[in-house]
């Protein structure tokens, strides 16, 4: 689907992140440069410790690089040597431009599906009436409108993950970041969730999905392979269609 002159959504240059563990310095991410365009569906792969989670956290503005630059939609989120957005501005970027989907859903257990989906709008300063309307629309788009008043414990794993996806979509983000979104689901439900991602991607949203399962990665249009903190492989492929 990636038509040639698509504008870059994510531009990462020489991104590096290292941690100090005792006397050793661990290069969690080492000099990674990559461009992801609008409308792409990218799978990030690699064994544990390969740097894919660090890459993900940096893209999600949950962490700052030690060096290198990161531009999201033309905005310099992290620049050379400490220049970049303030912590409050990063919070706003996470809130408006990025939607997170986690392996373990991370729904608030005592709130209804509707309340959970409304949560990002609480931090976006959206009025109450509009919150309900937009949350119901988001739940509709994942096929769970009639479960709006259910609590997470009353929903299956696949339904919970779909509520989480609705929550990620509710502020109309530019980018959906999914961290092992099918890791806690059985094969059939996993396929459903991947199918939902593909449908959302066809509607124009950019998706970056971290996984260590090749069966999941084959549904993406592009695969980035990480090992030892470096990007070792960047492959465009024809995605398989999931149901």
């Amino acid at each position: 689907m990636a038509s040639e002159p698509a504008e870059p959504l994510i531009t990462v240059e020489r991104l590096t992140r290292h941690y100090r563990m005792g006397p050793q310095i661990v290069h969690a991410l080492d000099d990674v440069s990559v461009v992801i365009h609008r409308g792409e569906f990218v799978a990030v792969m690699g064994p544990s410790g390969s740097g894919k989670s660090t890459f993900m956290n940096l893209l999600g503005c949950l962490d700052r690089p030690d060096s290198g630059t990161y531009r999201l939609d033309g905005q310099e989120v992290a620049g050379q040597e400490g220049t970049g957005l303030s912590s409050d501005a990063l919070a706003a970027v996470r809130n408006r431009s990025i939607g997170f989907v986690f392996q373990s859903f991370n729904l608030l257990p005592r709130q209804t599906a509707l309340d959970n989906v409304m949560l990002p709008m609480v931090y976006a300063g959206v009025g109450h009436a509009q919150r309900v309307e937009r949350a119901l629309t988001a739940l509709d788009s994942v096929g769970l409108r009639e479960r709006a008043r259910h609590r997470p414990t009353q929903l299956s794993g696949g339904q919970q993950q779909r509520v989480a996806i609705a929550r990620a979509l509710v502020n109309d983000p530019l980018l959906l970041l999914a961290d092992e979104p099918t890791g806690a689901l059985d094969t059939v439900t996993s396929l459903e969730i991947i199918g939902l991602f593909q449908r959302l991607n066809r509607c124009g949203i950019t998706i970056v999905l971290v996984t260590h399962e090749p069966e999941v990665a084959r549904f993406a249009g592009r695969v980035l392979n990480f090992r030892d903190g470096r990007l070792i492989d960047d492959v465009n492929q024809t995605p398989e269609a999931a149901a």
Partner: peptide
Amino acid sequence: TREIGLRIAIGARRRD
């Protein structure tokens, strides 16, 4: 802790 992490991820500022 996880709830706090989630709230920060979806856009809560430290102040919130």
